[in-house]
Design a protein around this nucleic acid. Structure first.
Lengths: 238, 238
DNA sequence: TAGATTGTTAATCGATTAACAATC
DNA sequence: TAGATTGTTAATCGATTAACAATC
Protein backbone atom coordinates (compact mmCIF):
# COMPACT_ATOMS: atom_id res chain seq x y z
CA UNK A 1 0.00 0.00 0.00
CA UNK A 2 3.01 2.28 0.11
CA UNK A 3 2.31 3.11 -3.51
CA UNK A 4 -1.16 4.44 -2.89
CA UNK A 5 0.10 6.52 0.03
CA UNK A 6 2.78 8.03 -2.16
CA UNK A 7 0.25 8.73 -4.85
CA UNK A 8 -2.11 10.42 -2.42
CA UNK A 9 0.67 12.70 -1.29
CA UNK A 10 1.51 13.57 -4.83
CA UNK A 11 -2.06 14.28 -5.78
CA UNK A 12 -2.28 17.11 -3.27
CA UNK A 13 0.06 18.89 -5.58
CA UNK A 14 -2.76 19.34 -8.07
CA UNK A 15 -3.60 22.31 -5.88
CA UNK A 16 -0.16 23.86 -6.31
CA UNK A 17 -0.52 27.44 -7.40
CA UNK A 18 1.98 27.75 -10.21
CA UNK A 19 2.29 25.71 -13.37
CA UNK A 20 4.27 27.28 -16.18
CA UNK A 21 2.31 28.46 -19.25
CA UNK A 22 4.43 26.20 -21.44
CA UNK A 23 3.22 23.17 -19.50
CA UNK A 24 -0.41 24.32 -19.44
CA UNK A 25 -0.43 24.67 -23.20
CA UNK A 26 0.85 21.12 -23.57
CA UNK A 27 -1.79 19.53 -21.34
CA UNK A 28 -4.45 19.38 -24.06
CA UNK A 29 -1.99 17.54 -26.28
CA UNK A 30 -1.58 14.85 -23.64
CA UNK A 31 -5.36 14.68 -23.48
CA UNK A 32 -5.57 14.10 -27.22
CA UNK A 33 -2.85 11.49 -27.43
CA UNK A 34 -4.15 9.59 -24.44
CA UNK A 35 -7.59 9.42 -26.02
CA UNK A 36 -5.89 8.09 -29.13
CA UNK A 37 -4.11 5.41 -27.06
CA UNK A 38 -7.41 4.41 -25.46
CA UNK A 39 -9.02 4.19 -28.90
CA UNK A 40 -6.15 1.93 -29.93
CA UNK A 41 -6.83 -0.29 -26.93
CA UNK A 42 -3.47 0.37 -25.25
CA UNK A 43 -3.55 0.01 -21.49
CA UNK A 44 0.04 0.95 -20.71
CA UNK A 45 2.51 3.42 -22.10
CA UNK A 46 6.06 4.53 -21.22
CA UNK A 47 7.27 8.09 -21.50
CA UNK A 48 9.57 6.89 -24.27
CA UNK A 49 6.76 5.38 -26.36
CA UNK A 50 4.59 8.44 -25.84
CA UNK A 51 7.49 10.73 -26.71
CA UNK A 52 7.86 9.00 -30.07
CA UNK A 53 4.14 9.36 -30.79
CA UNK A 54 4.10 13.01 -29.85
CA UNK A 55 7.46 13.96 -31.27
CA UNK A 56 8.83 15.39 -28.02
CA UNK A 57 11.40 14.16 -25.49
CA UNK A 58 10.54 11.53 -22.89
CA UNK A 59 12.17 13.80 -20.35
CA UNK A 60 9.70 16.56 -21.09
CA UNK A 61 6.75 14.25 -20.67
CA UNK A 62 7.95 13.02 -17.28
CA UNK A 63 8.77 16.57 -16.21
CA UNK A 64 5.36 17.86 -17.32
CA UNK A 65 3.33 15.13 -15.68
CA UNK A 66 5.26 15.51 -12.47
CA UNK A 67 4.02 19.06 -12.09
CA UNK A 68 0.76 17.44 -11.05
CA UNK A 69 1.96 14.39 -9.16
CA UNK A 70 3.42 10.96 -9.70
CA UNK A 71 1.09 9.31 -12.16
CA UNK A 72 3.52 6.60 -13.26
CA UNK A 73 5.30 3.64 -11.81
CA UNK A 74 8.99 2.86 -12.04
CA UNK A 75 9.73 -0.10 -14.24
CA UNK A 76 6.20 -0.08 -15.66
CA UNK A 77 5.37 3.28 -17.14
CA UNK A 78 1.94 4.88 -17.08
CA UNK A 79 -1.46 3.25 -16.96
CA UNK A 80 -3.25 4.84 -19.90
CA UNK A 81 -6.72 4.97 -18.37
CA UNK A 82 -5.51 6.26 -15.03
CA UNK A 83 -3.37 8.94 -16.65
CA UNK A 84 -6.24 9.97 -18.92
CA UNK A 85 -8.55 10.28 -15.92
CA UNK A 86 -6.02 12.45 -14.12
CA UNK A 87 -5.45 14.72 -17.12
CA UNK A 88 -9.22 15.09 -17.52
CA UNK A 89 -9.51 16.06 -13.85
CA UNK A 90 -6.73 18.61 -14.20
CA UNK A 91 -8.34 20.13 -17.28
CA UNK A 92 -11.77 20.17 -15.67
CA UNK A 93 -13.33 17.94 -18.33
CA UNK A 94 -15.64 16.39 -15.76
CA UNK A 95 -16.84 19.73 -14.44
CA UNK A 96 -19.24 20.21 -17.32
CA UNK A 97 -18.36 23.80 -18.06
CA UNK A 98 -21.16 25.93 -19.46
CA UNK A 99 -20.38 28.52 -22.09
CA UNK A 100 -22.19 31.34 -23.91
CA UNK A 101 -21.29 32.90 -27.24
CA UNK A 102 -21.45 36.69 -27.37
CA UNK A 103 -22.09 37.79 -30.93
CA UNK A 104 -24.27 35.78 -33.32
CA UNK A 105 -22.62 36.91 -36.56
CA UNK A 106 -20.73 34.75 -39.06
CA UNK A 107 -18.01 33.70 -36.66
CA UNK A 108 -20.28 33.10 -33.68
CA UNK A 109 -22.70 31.06 -35.77
CA UNK A 110 -19.89 28.96 -37.23
CA UNK A 111 -18.30 28.38 -33.84
CA UNK A 112 -21.48 27.33 -32.09
CA UNK A 113 -21.92 24.48 -34.57
CA UNK A 114 -18.35 23.41 -34.13
CA UNK A 115 -17.75 19.94 -32.64
CA UNK A 116 -14.90 21.29 -30.53
CA UNK A 117 -17.13 22.03 -27.54
CA UNK A 118 -18.55 18.56 -27.29
CA UNK A 119 -15.14 17.00 -27.87
CA UNK A 120 -13.58 18.93 -25.03
CA UNK A 121 -16.39 18.73 -22.52
CA UNK A 122 -17.89 22.22 -22.79
CA UNK A 123 -21.66 22.89 -23.18
CA UNK A 124 -22.73 25.94 -25.13
CA UNK A 125 -25.99 27.01 -23.48
CA UNK A 126 -26.71 30.45 -24.91
CA UNK A 127 -25.87 33.08 -27.49
CA UNK A 128 -26.27 36.83 -27.20
CA UNK A 129 -26.70 39.56 -29.78
CA UNK A 130 -28.40 42.91 -30.26
CA UNK A 131 -29.70 42.21 -33.75
CA UNK A 132 -33.47 41.74 -33.47
CA UNK A 133 -33.56 39.52 -36.56
CA UNK A 134 -31.64 36.77 -34.74
CA UNK A 135 -32.74 37.30 -31.11
CA UNK A 136 -35.22 34.60 -30.14
CA UNK A 137 -34.04 32.25 -32.90
CA UNK A 138 -31.91 29.16 -32.50
CA UNK A 139 -28.51 28.72 -34.13
CA UNK A 140 -27.51 25.09 -34.11
CA UNK A 141 -29.22 23.99 -30.91
CA UNK A 142 -28.59 27.22 -29.09
CA UNK A 143 -31.09 30.00 -28.34
CA UNK A 144 -30.06 33.60 -29.04
CA UNK A 145 -30.94 36.13 -26.31
CA UNK A 146 -30.79 39.91 -26.43
CA UNK A 147 -27.70 41.47 -24.89
CA UNK A 148 -29.80 43.29 -22.33
CA UNK A 149 -30.59 39.90 -20.78
CA UNK A 150 -26.90 39.06 -20.42
CA UNK A 151 -26.60 39.13 -16.64
CA UNK A 152 -29.99 37.53 -16.07
CA UNK A 153 -29.38 34.59 -18.42
CA UNK A 154 -25.81 34.04 -17.26
CA UNK A 155 -27.19 33.63 -13.78
CA UNK A 156 -30.14 31.39 -14.64
CA UNK A 157 -28.09 29.23 -17.00
CA UNK A 158 -25.00 29.09 -14.72
CA UNK A 159 -22.58 30.21 -17.40
CA UNK A 160 -18.90 29.70 -16.49
CA UNK A 161 -17.20 31.10 -19.57
CA UNK A 162 -18.05 33.23 -22.59
CA UNK A 163 -16.82 33.33 -26.17
CA UNK A 164 -16.23 36.77 -27.65
CA UNK A 165 -17.15 37.03 -31.33
CA UNK A 166 -18.77 40.47 -31.28
CA UNK A 167 -17.15 43.65 -32.70
CA UNK A 168 -14.06 45.00 -30.90
CA UNK A 169 -15.67 48.24 -29.73
CA UNK A 170 -18.03 46.48 -27.31
CA UNK A 171 -15.26 44.64 -25.47
CA UNK A 172 -14.69 47.02 -22.58
CA UNK A 173 -18.36 47.47 -21.78
CA UNK A 174 -19.04 43.72 -21.86
CA UNK A 175 -15.99 42.85 -19.75
CA UNK A 176 -17.20 45.36 -17.15
CA UNK A 177 -20.63 43.73 -17.10
CA UNK A 178 -19.16 40.23 -16.86
CA UNK A 179 -17.07 41.12 -13.83
CA UNK A 180 -20.27 41.29 -11.82
CA UNK A 181 -21.38 37.80 -12.89
CA UNK A 182 -20.38 34.18 -12.28
CA UNK A 183 -18.28 34.11 -15.44
CA UNK A 184 -14.62 33.15 -14.89
CA UNK A 185 -13.19 32.98 -18.36
CA UNK A 186 -13.22 34.55 -21.81
CA UNK A 187 -12.29 32.83 -25.04
CA UNK A 188 -11.50 35.86 -27.14
CA UNK A 189 -11.87 35.79 -30.93
CA UNK A 190 -12.11 39.55 -31.44
CA UNK A 191 -8.55 39.88 -32.71
CA UNK A 192 -7.32 42.01 -29.82
CA UNK A 193 -4.96 41.27 -26.96
CA UNK A 194 -7.35 41.25 -24.06
CA UNK A 195 -6.07 41.15 -20.48
CA UNK A 196 -7.99 41.17 -17.26
CA UNK A 197 -7.07 40.76 -13.62
CA UNK A 198 -10.41 39.38 -12.58
CA UNK A 199 -11.12 37.09 -15.54
CA UNK A 200 -9.05 34.41 -17.23
CA UNK A 201 -8.58 35.22 -20.91
CA UNK A 202 -7.44 33.03 -23.77
CA UNK A 203 -6.84 35.05 -26.92
CA UNK A 204 -7.18 33.45 -30.34
CA UNK A 205 -5.33 35.12 -33.19
CA UNK A 206 -6.02 33.09 -36.22
CA UNK A 207 -4.78 35.86 -38.51
CA UNK A 208 -1.43 35.90 -36.77
CA UNK A 209 -1.07 32.20 -37.41
CA UNK A 210 -1.85 32.71 -41.10
CA UNK A 211 0.79 35.44 -41.28
CA UNK A 212 3.42 33.34 -39.55
CA UNK A 213 2.78 30.77 -42.27
CA UNK A 214 3.11 33.49 -44.91
CA UNK A 215 6.46 34.49 -43.45
CA UNK A 216 7.80 30.97 -43.65
CA UNK A 217 6.45 30.48 -47.15
CA UNK A 218 8.02 33.75 -48.26
CA UNK A 219 11.35 32.55 -46.83
CA UNK A 220 11.14 29.25 -48.67
CA UNK A 221 10.37 31.06 -51.90
CA UNK A 222 13.43 33.25 -51.37
CA UNK A 223 15.60 30.23 -50.71
CA UNK A 224 14.31 28.53 -53.82
CA UNK A 225 14.96 31.60 -55.90
CA UNK A 226 18.53 31.80 -54.68
CA UNK A 227 19.14 28.11 -55.25
CA UNK A 228 17.87 28.36 -58.80
CA UNK A 229 20.04 31.39 -59.61
CA UNK A 230 22.00 31.18 -62.88
CA UNK A 231 25.19 29.85 -61.32
CA UNK A 232 23.41 27.84 -58.65
CA UNK A 233 25.38 29.68 -56.00
CA UNK A 234 23.88 31.32 -52.97
CA UNK A 235 24.43 35.07 -52.89
CA UNK A 236 26.93 34.90 -50.04
CA UNK A 237 29.01 32.31 -51.90
CA UNK A 238 29.61 34.63 -54.84
CA UNK B 1 23.93 59.58 -46.69
CA UNK B 2 25.76 57.41 -44.21
CA UNK B 3 22.39 56.48 -42.82
CA UNK B 4 21.09 55.03 -46.05
CA UNK B 5 24.32 53.09 -46.53
CA UNK B 6 23.99 51.64 -43.06
CA UNK B 7 20.40 50.76 -43.70
CA UNK B 8 21.22 49.02 -46.97
CA UNK B 9 23.76 46.89 -45.20
CA UNK B 10 21.29 45.99 -42.53
CA UNK B 11 18.58 45.12 -44.99
CA UNK B 12 20.66 42.33 -46.45
CA UNK B 13 20.08 40.60 -43.20
CA UNK B 14 16.48 39.98 -44.22
CA UNK B 15 18.00 37.04 -46.05
CA UNK B 16 19.55 35.60 -42.90
CA UNK B 17 18.57 31.99 -42.55
CA UNK B 18 17.52 31.71 -38.91
CA UNK B 19 14.97 33.74 -37.00
CA UNK B 20 13.73 32.18 -33.77
CA UNK B 21 10.14 30.89 -33.74
CA UNK B 22 9.37 33.18 -30.81
CA UNK B 23 10.24 36.20 -32.95
CA UNK B 24 8.35 34.91 -36.00
CA UNK B 25 5.20 34.49 -33.97
CA UNK B 26 5.44 38.08 -32.77
CA UNK B 27 5.83 39.60 -36.22
CA UNK B 28 2.10 39.61 -36.98
CA UNK B 29 1.51 41.48 -33.74
CA UNK B 30 3.84 44.25 -34.90
CA UNK B 31 1.94 44.29 -38.16
CA UNK B 32 -1.36 44.77 -36.30
CA UNK B 33 -0.14 47.48 -33.98
CA UNK B 34 1.59 49.39 -36.73
CA UNK B 35 -1.60 49.41 -38.76
CA UNK B 36 -3.34 50.72 -35.67
CA UNK B 37 -0.76 53.51 -35.35
CA UNK B 38 -1.22 54.42 -39.00
CA UNK B 39 -4.99 54.50 -38.51
CA UNK B 40 -4.41 56.87 -35.59
CA UNK B 41 -2.33 59.11 -37.82
CA UNK B 42 0.91 58.61 -35.90
CA UNK B 43 4.03 59.04 -38.01
CA UNK B 44 6.65 58.27 -35.39
CA UNK B 45 6.93 55.83 -32.50
CA UNK B 46 9.64 54.89 -30.00
CA UNK B 47 10.20 51.37 -28.75
CA UNK B 48 9.06 52.60 -25.33
CA UNK B 49 5.73 53.94 -26.60
CA UNK B 50 5.09 50.82 -28.65
CA UNK B 51 6.02 48.62 -25.68
CA UNK B 52 3.34 50.29 -23.59
CA UNK B 53 0.72 49.79 -26.31
CA UNK B 54 1.64 46.16 -26.78
CA UNK B 55 2.30 45.32 -23.17
CA UNK B 56 5.81 44.00 -23.75
CA UNK B 57 9.29 45.36 -22.99
CA UNK B 58 10.91 48.00 -25.18
CA UNK B 59 14.00 45.84 -25.13
CA UNK B 60 12.17 42.99 -26.75
CA UNK B 61 10.84 45.20 -29.51
CA UNK B 62 14.29 46.54 -30.35
CA UNK B 63 15.75 43.04 -30.18
CA UNK B 64 13.02 41.60 -32.42
CA UNK B 65 13.19 44.30 -35.06
CA UNK B 66 16.95 44.05 -35.17
CA UNK B 67 16.74 40.46 -36.37
CA UNK B 68 15.77 41.99 -39.70
CA UNK B 69 17.89 45.13 -39.78
CA UNK B 70 18.09 48.60 -38.30
CA UNK B 71 14.72 50.12 -38.98
CA UNK B 72 15.00 52.89 -36.40
CA UNK B 73 17.09 55.94 -35.75
CA UNK B 74 18.87 56.86 -32.54
CA UNK B 75 17.30 59.79 -30.79
CA UNK B 76 14.21 59.62 -33.00
CA UNK B 77 12.64 56.19 -32.80
CA UNK B 78 10.90 54.46 -35.68
CA UNK B 79 9.09 55.99 -38.65
CA UNK B 80 5.70 54.26 -38.52
CA UNK B 81 5.13 54.04 -42.25
CA UNK B 82 8.63 52.87 -43.02
CA UNK B 83 8.52 50.23 -40.29
CA UNK B 84 5.10 49.05 -41.46
CA UNK B 85 6.38 48.73 -45.01
CA UNK B 86 9.33 46.69 -43.82
CA UNK B 87 7.22 44.38 -41.67
CA UNK B 88 4.86 43.86 -44.62
CA UNK B 89 7.82 42.97 -46.81
CA UNK B 90 9.12 40.49 -44.25
CA UNK B 91 5.71 38.85 -43.90
CA UNK B 92 5.21 38.73 -47.65
CA UNK B 93 2.06 40.86 -47.59
CA UNK B 94 2.92 42.38 -50.95
CA UNK B 95 3.50 39.02 -52.60
CA UNK B 96 -0.23 38.42 -53.03
CA UNK B 97 -0.24 34.83 -51.83
CA UNK B 98 -2.84 32.58 -53.39
CA UNK B 99 -4.55 29.97 -51.27
CA UNK B 100 -6.94 27.06 -51.75
CA UNK B 101 -9.20 25.45 -49.15
CA UNK B 102 -9.27 21.66 -49.16
CA UNK B 103 -12.57 20.48 -47.73
CA UNK B 104 -15.84 22.36 -48.31
CA UNK B 105 -17.62 21.23 -45.15
CA UNK B 106 -18.76 23.41 -42.24
CA UNK B 107 -15.31 24.59 -41.26
CA UNK B 108 -14.05 25.16 -44.79
CA UNK B 109 -17.21 27.09 -45.75
CA UNK B 110 -16.98 29.26 -42.63
CA UNK B 111 -13.28 29.95 -43.15
CA UNK B 112 -13.59 30.93 -46.78
CA UNK B 113 -16.01 33.73 -45.88
CA UNK B 114 -13.73 34.91 -43.11
CA UNK B 115 -12.28 38.43 -43.49
CA UNK B 116 -8.91 37.21 -42.20
CA UNK B 117 -7.59 36.45 -45.68
CA UNK B 118 -8.29 39.88 -47.09
CA UNK B 119 -6.97 41.54 -43.92
CA UNK B 120 -3.67 39.72 -44.14
CA UNK B 121 -3.12 39.88 -47.87
CA UNK B 122 -4.02 36.34 -48.93
CA UNK B 123 -6.35 35.53 -51.85
CA UNK B 124 -8.47 32.39 -51.65
CA UNK B 125 -8.78 31.26 -55.26
CA UNK B 126 -10.26 27.76 -55.02
CA UNK B 127 -11.88 25.13 -52.86
CA UNK B 128 -11.72 21.36 -53.31
CA UNK B 129 -14.04 18.58 -52.20
CA UNK B 130 -15.23 15.15 -53.31
CA UNK B 131 -18.92 15.76 -52.54
CA UNK B 132 -20.72 16.10 -55.84
CA UNK B 133 -23.45 18.27 -54.32
CA UNK B 134 -20.96 21.11 -53.74
CA UNK B 135 -18.51 20.61 -56.61
CA UNK B 136 -19.12 23.25 -59.26
CA UNK B 137 -20.89 25.60 -56.82
CA UNK B 138 -19.52 28.75 -55.28
CA UNK B 139 -19.07 29.27 -51.55
CA UNK B 140 -18.63 32.95 -50.80
CA UNK B 141 -16.89 34.02 -54.00
CA UNK B 142 -14.92 30.86 -54.38
CA UNK B 143 -15.53 28.02 -56.84
CA UNK B 144 -15.45 24.45 -55.53
CA UNK B 145 -13.53 21.95 -57.69
CA UNK B 146 -13.41 18.18 -57.44
CA UNK B 147 -10.41 16.73 -55.68
CA UNK B 148 -9.33 14.90 -58.79
CA UNK B 149 -8.59 18.29 -60.36
CA UNK B 150 -6.32 19.25 -57.47
CA UNK B 151 -2.94 19.27 -59.25
CA UNK B 152 -4.36 20.76 -62.44
CA UNK B 153 -6.12 23.67 -60.70
CA UNK B 154 -3.24 24.36 -58.33
CA UNK B 155 -1.08 24.78 -61.39
CA UNK B 156 -3.46 26.91 -63.45
CA UNK B 157 -4.42 29.10 -60.48
CA UNK B 158 -0.83 29.38 -59.13
CA UNK B 159 -1.74 28.29 -55.62
CA UNK B 160 1.02 28.94 -53.04
CA UNK B 161 -0.62 27.54 -49.91
CA UNK B 162 -3.53 25.32 -48.94
CA UNK B 163 -5.88 25.20 -45.98
CA UNK B 164 -6.68 21.75 -44.61
CA UNK B 165 -10.25 21.39 -43.38
CA UNK B 166 -10.97 17.91 -44.70
CA UNK B 167 -11.16 14.76 -42.52
CA UNK B 168 -7.94 13.54 -40.89
CA UNK B 169 -7.73 10.28 -42.80
CA UNK B 170 -7.05 12.02 -46.14
CA UNK B 171 -4.06 13.97 -44.85
CA UNK B 172 -1.23 11.66 -45.90
CA UNK B 173 -2.55 11.12 -49.41
CA UNK B 174 -3.10 14.83 -49.99
CA UNK B 175 0.30 15.85 -48.59
CA UNK B 176 1.91 13.36 -50.96
CA UNK B 177 0.03 14.86 -53.91
CA UNK B 178 0.90 18.42 -52.86
CA UNK B 179 4.60 17.66 -52.74
CA UNK B 180 4.59 17.41 -56.52
CA UNK B 181 2.96 20.84 -56.93
CA UNK B 182 3.89 24.50 -56.49
CA UNK B 183 2.37 24.59 -53.00
CA UNK B 184 4.80 25.66 -50.25
CA UNK B 185 2.64 25.83 -47.16
CA UNK B 186 -0.22 24.19 -45.30
CA UNK B 187 -2.49 25.87 -42.79
CA UNK B 188 -3.72 22.82 -40.94
CA UNK B 189 -7.11 22.82 -39.19
CA UNK B 190 -7.52 19.04 -39.03
CA UNK B 191 -6.64 18.81 -35.36
CA UNK B 192 -3.48 16.78 -35.86
CA UNK B 193 0.18 17.67 -35.44
CA UNK B 194 1.32 17.66 -39.02
CA UNK B 195 4.99 17.87 -39.89
CA UNK B 196 6.66 17.86 -43.25
CA UNK B 197 10.20 18.35 -44.46
CA UNK B 198 9.23 19.65 -47.84
CA UNK B 199 6.27 21.86 -46.89
CA UNK B 200 5.88 24.57 -44.27
CA UNK B 201 3.08 23.71 -41.86
CA UNK B 202 1.21 25.87 -39.40
CA UNK B 203 -1.02 23.81 -37.14
CA UNK B 204 -4.14 25.34 -35.59
CA UNK B 205 -5.44 23.67 -32.45
CA UNK B 206 -8.45 25.62 -31.42
CA UNK B 207 -9.61 22.86 -29.09
CA UNK B 208 -6.32 22.96 -27.21
CA UNK B 209 -6.79 26.67 -26.63
CA UNK B 210 -10.29 26.06 -25.27
CA UNK B 211 -8.93 23.42 -22.90
CA UNK B 212 -6.11 25.65 -21.68
CA UNK B 213 -8.84 28.14 -20.79
CA UNK B 214 -10.78 25.38 -19.02
CA UNK B 215 -7.70 24.52 -16.97
CA UNK B 216 -7.26 28.09 -15.82
CA UNK B 217 -10.96 28.47 -15.07
CA UNK B 218 -10.92 25.23 -13.08
CA UNK B 219 -7.97 26.57 -11.09
CA UNK B 220 -9.75 29.83 -10.34
CA UNK B 221 -12.81 27.94 -9.16
CA UNK B 222 -10.63 25.86 -6.85
CA UNK B 223 -9.01 28.99 -5.45
CA UNK B 224 -12.39 30.58 -4.88
CA UNK B 225 -13.68 27.48 -3.14
CA UNK B 226 -10.71 27.43 -0.79
CA UNK B 227 -11.00 31.13 -0.03
CA UNK B 228 -14.68 30.73 0.78
CA UNK B 229 -14.11 27.72 3.04
CA UNK B 230 -15.92 27.88 6.42
CA UNK B 231 -12.94 29.23 8.32
CA UNK B 232 -11.65 31.27 5.42
CA UNK B 233 -8.34 29.43 5.70
CA UNK B 234 -6.57 27.81 2.82
CA UNK B 235 -6.19 24.03 3.23
CA UNK B 236 -2.48 24.24 3.91
CA UNK B 237 -3.00 26.81 6.67
CA UNK B 238 -5.23 24.50 8.67
C1' DT C 1 16.79 -10.76 -8.32
C1' DA C 2 17.53 -8.22 -12.73
C1' DG C 3 15.50 -5.14 -15.95
C1' DA C 4 12.85 -1.34 -16.81
C1' DT C 5 11.35 3.07 -16.25
C1' DT C 6 9.97 6.58 -13.31
C1' DG C 7 10.78 10.93 -10.44
C1' DT C 8 14.00 14.35 -9.74
C1' DT C 9 18.26 16.87 -9.73
C1' DA C 10 21.78 19.02 -12.41
C1' DA C 11 23.44 20.82 -16.95
C1' DT C 12 22.31 22.99 -21.12
C1' DC C 13 20.07 25.74 -24.05
C1' DG C 14 17.36 29.59 -25.64
C1' DA C 15 14.73 33.60 -24.88
C1' DT C 16 14.00 37.80 -22.34
C1' DT C 17 15.54 41.75 -19.97
C1' DA C 18 18.91 45.17 -18.49
C1' DA C 19 22.43 48.22 -19.47
C1' DC C 20 25.01 51.27 -22.05
C1' DA C 21 27.91 52.93 -25.78
C1' DA C 22 26.93 54.66 -30.36
C1' DT C 23 24.76 58.17 -32.76
C1' DC C 24 21.06 60.79 -34.62
C1' DT D 1 25.68 70.83 -28.37
C1' DA D 2 22.46 68.22 -25.24
C1' DG D 3 18.78 64.97 -25.11
C1' DA D 4 16.76 61.07 -26.79
C1' DT D 5 16.61 56.62 -28.28
C1' DT D 6 18.47 53.13 -30.96
C1' DG D 7 21.45 48.87 -31.75
C1' DT D 8 23.92 45.56 -29.34
C1' DT D 9 26.33 43.21 -25.73
C1' DA D 10 26.07 41.13 -21.29
C1' DA D 11 23.21 39.33 -17.41
C1' DT D 12 19.18 37.01 -16.04
C1' DC D 13 15.62 34.14 -16.28
C1' DG D 14 12.96 30.16 -17.62
C1' DA D 15 12.33 26.06 -20.16
C1' DT D 16 14.25 21.89 -22.07
C1' DT D 17 17.20 18.03 -21.97
C1' DA D 18 20.39 14.76 -19.85
C1' DA D 19 21.59 11.84 -16.29
C1' DC D 20 20.93 8.84 -12.67
C1' DA D 21 19.45 7.23 -8.17
C1' DA D 22 15.13 5.39 -6.47
C1' DT D 23 12.07 1.74 -6.91
C1' DC D 24 8.61 -1.04 -8.96
Amino acid sequence: MSESVRQENKEKEVLRPTVSPAVINRLPRYFRYLRELIRMGKTRVSSLELSKMMNVTASQIRQDLNCFGGFGQQGYGYNVNYLYTKICEILGVGIGFRAAVIGAGNLGSALVRCPVFEQRGVDVVAMFDVDKTVVGKKIGNVRVYHMNELEKRIKSLSVDMVIFTMPKDCIDEIVARLQKTSVYGIWNFTGTELESDSLVVENIHIGDSLMALCFEVAQRMEQEKRKNGKDGKKPWEK
